[in-house]
Nucleic acid binder design. Structure first.
Lengths: 132, 132
DNA sequence: AGTAGCTGGTTACCAATGGTTACTGTCGGC
DNA sequence: GCCGACAGTAACCATTGGTAACCAGCTACT
């Protein structure tokens, strides 16, 4: 396994650099930017959940879109997807350790959003009034 | 100014709750999800920048899209936009105190992205191999 | 005098992503 | 035999991101 590639000429990125347009870190930032990723991870931080539990916890999310979100999280190794061959079917989503390591940063962002939301709403209102 | 609205029946949201679909916090999370918001704020965290400096710092972003991003950040009260009537024209973008308060949470996320990017890439590869 | 170029955009147009509504398959209960 | 629960898919729009071309105002070059 090649983990230390700093002697190579090509960019191998053993750590990542968000300011490099060619670095896969951009993909990671895109994922966090996916509309329901943050909420899904936050919900799963309390424990494994089923599809409908996630859907109801988020509220007003189309099943297709939630499926897309969860597939991408699974592909990124942030969650696991367990299917139980029962009737009615049961699918349980669980955070992996990698996914759990994201809880801290994500919670920082959502806490910030909750705390500063009033200020942002106020700024939006005055901006809209000025340009009206 | 009404800041404590907990005695009202209607939702007035003095703080925000990301799990409530009707809460404006969702708008804030959407903004962070905008493709270039995080990078723009990170770049501006080092000091005010001009339009082209931001564009070059991000790399491969269409001017139209960068303009959209910056206007939204301005509307949210996260940055200010100063125009100097010179030739050639000069426009300087600066983080507001509100914008500066976002640096911490955003840096937590981007640091996480840089640190765990190799693990994510590996997970993606094995996922793609399995489904191939 | 003509023209090319810099800055910070805008406009028109196209592609990709996100989102909504409707539908599927399986089985147990009524 | 029909309904509903679960975990999705299918077909179809809407929003966003991206590209290429252009503009205004002045300066500097030829």
């Amino acid at each position: 396994m090649v983990t230390n590639g700093e002697h190579l000429v090509a960019k191998i990125f053993s750590r990542g650099d968000v300011f490099d347009p060619d670095c896969p870190t951009r993909v990671v930032l895109d994922r966090i930017g996916d509309k329901w990723t943050v909420l899904s991870v936050l919900l799963l931080s309390k424990g494994p959940l089923r599809f409908t539990e996630l859907r109801d916890g988020i509220g007003r999310v189309a099943p297709k879109v939630l499926t897309q979100t969860l597939r991408r999280l699974q592909r990124d190794g942030l969650i696991t997807r367990e299917v139980f061959a029962e009737v009615p079917p049961r699918v349980v989503y669980t955070l992996t350790p990698l996914g759990e390591s994201l809880i801290g940063p994500i919670r920082a962002v959502s806490d910030w959003a909750e705390e500063h939301m009033p200020a942002i709403s106020a700024a939006q209102n005055s901006y809209d009034l000025d340009s009206a």
